[in-house]
Each structure stands twice: as structure tokens, then as C-alpha cells.
Amino acid sequence: MLNLSAQLNTYLVIGAMLFGFGVCGLIRRPTLIGMLIAAELVLCGASINFMAFNHFLAPDPTVGQIMTLFIMAIAAAEAAIAMSILVCIYRDYKSIELENLEELSG
């Protein structure tokens, strides 16, 4: 049990679990913010995979790190944009519940 940290599979399973939680949350959450939180989990799961492969398998162990850093940047951008969209939606609809936003679906 104590040398789990040195095994690739541990990280992959954790990554898969985070991904699974994320997907579950994405479906389950009724609000935009909840979905955003779930999406962050998905991204986190992906990042763990990158980092794990980077550590154990990659010939050039900078690739995974850089990938993860890029994911972080994208996540930050995503959060900022999502939040400002949310502000706009909230201003117009006084709600961020998805059900009330059906008229947005063209």
C-alpha cells in the first residue's frame, strides 16, 4: 500500500475517477456554476494523466508539465469567460438555472 506513489496505475485510476466525477457532475448539476465546477474536475483528471505519463513514460519529461500548464491557462480563461457570461445571463434572466434559459437554444 505504501509504495503506491511510485506506480503509474495509481495516478491513472485517480485521473479516471476524477474524470468520472466530472462527467457525473456535468450531467447532474442544474446550474451553470455547478457545471463549471464539474468541468474543472474533468480538466483536473486529464492533467493528472498528463503528469503521470510525463513522469513515468515520457522521454522528454517537460512535455506533460507544459501540457498541464497550458491546461491551467485554458481553464483560467474558461473560468473567466464562463463567469462573465454568467454575469450577463444573470443580469437578463435573474437566474442561472439551465431550465430557465431554454429560449437561448435557437
Binding site: A16, M17, F19, G20, V23, C24, R28
Partner: peptide, 17 residues
């Protein structure tokens, strides 16, 4: 969501292992 989530996680984990 529970089914989908666990399916995805399980699939990924199995694939990885």
C-alpha cells in the same frame, strides 16, 4: 449521471490498467 460517470471512470481505468 451516476451511471455515465461510473461508466466513463470504469472504462478509462480499465483501459489504463
Amino acid at each position: 449521471s451516476l451511471i455515465a460517470g461510473s461508466a466513463v471512470a470504469w472504462g478509462l481505468a480499465v483501459a489504463a490498467l
